[in-house]
Design a protein around this nucleic acid. Sequence first.
DNA 1: GTAATTGCTCAAGTTAACTTGAGGTCAAGA
DNA 2: TCTTGACCTCAAGTTAACTTGAGCAATTAC
Lengths: 154, 154
Amino acid sequence: MHPSDVLSIGQLASRTGLAVSAIRYYETQGLVRPTRNDGGQRRFRRSDIRRLSFVRIAQQFGFTIEQIAEQLQLLPESRTPTKGDWSKISLVFRAELDARIETLTKLRDNLDGCIGCGCLSLKKCRLYNPDDTARRKGSGPRYLMGDTPESNSS
Amino acid sequence: MHPSDVLSIGQLASRTGLAVSAIRYYETQGLVRPTRNDGGQRRFRRSDIRRLSFVRIAQQFGFTIEQIAEQLQLLPESRTPTKGDWSKISLVFRAELDARIETLTKLRDNLDGCIGCGCLSLKKCRLYNPDDTARRKGSGPRYLMGDTPESNSS
DNA sequence: GTAATTGCTCAAGTTAACTTGAGGTCAAGA
DNA sequence: TCTTGACCTCAAGTTAACTTGAGCAATTAC
């Protein structure tokens, strides 16, 4: 076989389940930094499979490419990441995740108090924009549950 | 004051915290169906405040406009929704939510087994695309954790 | 009654995360 | 060697969920 310590973009694609075009895009975003061979074609390291798998998982959780890129900064560029490197980064990741799940759960429980219970007393609702679920920045409104204390509708 | 059983788009905007342009957009998506006055301006019902508040909350949870629209179909168009109407719809909503939280939690725990534990044995990982977190349809790859059984890297 | 505010429509712009296409190059096998 | 198939670049298209702007009409406030 070929020097199996490097992968072509097509091989990496089939190993990760990503589209070739997606991997090229990720390169522009700094998620991977392949080298080039003499013909100018990309050559990836085996450890890039893991890198991109991490990207896939993080996306499942609603992280943006930018956030994922930040996390990946924690991995060493020069050498192949070790167990310890991955453990460190996944701790950060896991903490974020826990926070996210907790927020989601809290929101759900609050919702029960607002609409779920049937009382519909929106005035009691204190669900103010937690702003940490997967929302775009720069868009979307500021508060939740429009009823303000002064208004007494039904 | 004015006939306070109807609201202009601006009033609705300040009551919900949404931008006027967002409300107009929601109308095009069928989330609200205001009437028009003689001058052609939109007139909303008070109950639309609640409708849009629901939209806001559902978005926080990562539901798409389309999914939210489906939920809102369950509300009666002709009359003002009652407690019972809202309770019914929020039950559906809540079930979806619970499922979502559960998936998220499972994913997290699985992740611990894959990367979090430090063993990095991706071959053992069975995190296959659950596809029910907030992903776009029509994009994104098919599987997770590229390592297939036949490959024995690291 | 008139100015300032609010509203209206419609087209085009925005962001994220990619995909698609055009036009051309590289590599591997028969 | 020659022919596929895999790659390359760069520009433009795509989707969701809105926003912005232009140009104009209706309301409201004084």
